[in-house]
Design a protein around this nucleic acid. Structure first.
Length: 486
RNA sequence: GGCGGGGUAGCCAAGUGGUAAGGCAGAAGUCUGCAAAACUUCUAUGCGUCGGUUCAAUUCCGACCCCCGCCUCCA
């Protein structure tokens, strides 16, 4: 089956083929955070979607090299340094560490390279130099260096921008710049007093890099002048990615990234997140409300990346309930698999007629879900369809379980768990861990069992309530009572 | 003004020219001392509105309404 992605560059669904002639290595560059504050759940929607793309490529057998930058010098950072007087490196170091913590909480696979902008000033200067040499960049009277979009005929590949129809936003004061053309963007920003001691020497004077140049310099350094995938939020399409293409391709004469993937915005209660409307959340805010990284991961990943995701607490609660269903299912299987013998694990135990039937029945379900899962994700990461297939599988297998068929077959349970582990390399939800009850809890459970046997149900229910208050749920199964941590 | 995405049950959401996956929530039943979990059944004559094409449209075409995003440093 072939993997298809919706390429922003061509605006079409395209079959994915790596640049690598061997068809093996895939380079992905994802635009990382600007570390001047905690990242919010909207940021993490993008990072989670990129993680899914990366994991799926790996699942398909590609050798993925994932690069994500850390923007650690930029206007907002400089403003914060000025306001707080905290040294730049200390400030960005702190928020970088917080960001990486959050990534771990969401079970995002660490990128293979996490380059910081300030560590790559020489690479950026070299790129700017090349653009100056080619005559597509110029130094303006304000000493800043700009890229001249008029010199790059292909400008506007990602987004059809008609300069005459543009309505400049309100965030930029045009008269602050001395550019030749409105659309020109800064490659190097000349130092001014507000920058304080932040700045680097360059052939064009002291200053700091423009926003886009770091991504071009660092992606090409780690992935080569041409590479496979470049991802980010849809808000980066213009101007950020457009400008990256212009400056990279103008410098190298080669195609920059071949496939561009952009995820849609996350809204909160139907509106754009903003601190003013009180619907602005970081991961920390949600942890404080009792939600886990895993629950957020499910929430963020469960909606197709090109559709707007409306984040609501009802949505996270639904994610929690869905995960509980999955966990219940997996723990039931783990319980059965626990009784496996070494022979089961090595699959050399002679099969009984009964277990052959069980395995055959289960193999049919398993192969169906594998096919459906892959077919769904091959289709531009259609996660809804993939999860649908998974829940179909859970229902069908539960049915077999409730008929008592699988209960005696640790080997079948192990095989299902193996299949699930493979799905989970893509989903990253993790396998649930049944917790052993501590002695005092187990003792209470024994007391309850004794009460039940004596038909003292009032006492038994009392103990059940007591256990619940201590965070343990007791379930009576045909094999006896089972304790579960809440 | 330009460009783009979307409107499917209470909520989230997949999908197809042939009569609506899945999850959450809800109802009833089986099981249970009672529960829990699981299973079974039920919950959109309907897929924004109005036209058109077709044997047949939610799916194609046209018009319209509504929501959302981007249009210079926001993932």
């Amino acid at each position: 089956m072939s993997l298809k992605f919706f390429n922003t560059l061509t605006h079409r669904l395209e079959e994915f083929h790596p640049l690598d002639p061997a068809g093996k290595r895939v380079g992905i560059y994802t635009c990382g955070p600007t570390v001047y504050d905690f990242a919010h759940i909207g940021n993490f929607r993008a990072f989670t979607f990129e993680d899914l793309a990366r994991r799926y490529l790996a699942c398909k057998g590609y050798d993925v090299v994932h690069v994500m930058n850390i923007t650690d010098v930029e206007d907002k950072i400089i403003r914060k340094v000025r306001e707080t007087r905290e040294p730049l490196q200390q400030l960005t170091g702190r928020y970088t560490a917080a960001f990486l913590d959050d990534c771990r909480a969401l079970n995002l696979l660490p990128p293979h390279h996490v380059p910081r902008a300030t560590d790559h000033i020489p690479e950026m200067l070299a790129l700017i130099g090349a653009l100056m040499d080619k005559g597509v960049a110029y130094q303006a009277p304000d000493k800043s260096v700009y890229f001249s979009i008029a010199k790059f005929a292909r400008y506007g590949q990602l987004k059809k921008i008609d300069a005459d129809q543009m309505r400049p936003g309100e965030r930029v004061k045009l008269d602050e710049y001395e550019k030749e053309s409105l659309g020109d963007f800064a490659l190097w920003k000349a130092w001014d007093e507000a920058d304080g001691d932040i700045g680097w020497d360059s052939p064009w004077g002291r200053g700091r890099p423009g926003w886009h140049i770091e991504c071009s310099a660092m992606s090409m350094k780690y992935l080569g002048e041409s590479f496979d995938l470049h991802c980010g939020g849809e808000d980066l399409v213009f101007p950020h990615h457009e400008d990256e293409i212009a400056q990279s391709e103008a410098a190298t004469g080669k195609q920059f990234a071949r496939v561009w993937l952009h995820c849609a915005y996350l809204l909160v209660n139907g509106q754009k997140m903003s601190k003013r409307s009180g619907n602005f959340f970081t991961l920390r805010d949600l942890f404080a409300k009792g939600y886990t990284g895993r629950e957020l991961r499910y929430t963020l990943i469960a909606e197709h990346y090109r559709r707007q995701l409306n984040f609501t607490f009802e949505g996270v609660d639904a994610a929690r309930a869905s995960l509980a269903r999955i966990d219940e299912f997996l723990m039931k299987l783990q319980d059965i698999a626990k009784h496996a013998t070494p022979a089961d694990a090595n699959a050399v135990r002679p099969l009984t007629t009964e277990s052959v039937i069980e395995l055959t029945q289960q193999n049919a379900l398993t192969s169906r879900v594998k096919t459906a899962f892959e077919k769904a994700l091959d289709d531009d990461l259609n996660i809804s369809s993939a999860l649908g297939a998974l829940f179909d599988f859970i229902r069908d297998t539960n049915k077999v379980l409730s008929e008592g068929v699988l209960l005696s077959s640790p080997r079948a349970a192990m095989e299902i768990l193996d299949t699930w582990r493979r799905f989970d390399t893509v989903l990253g939800f993790g396998m649930p861990q049944a917790q052993e009850a501590p002695a005092d809890i187990a003792a209470l459970a024994d007391l309850r069992l004794a009460a039940r046997k004596a038909k003292d149900f009032k006492r038994a229910d009392q103990i059940r309530d007591e256990l619940k208050a201590k965070g343990w749920v007791i379930e009576d199964t045909p094999k006896g009572p089972k304790l579960k941590k809440l």
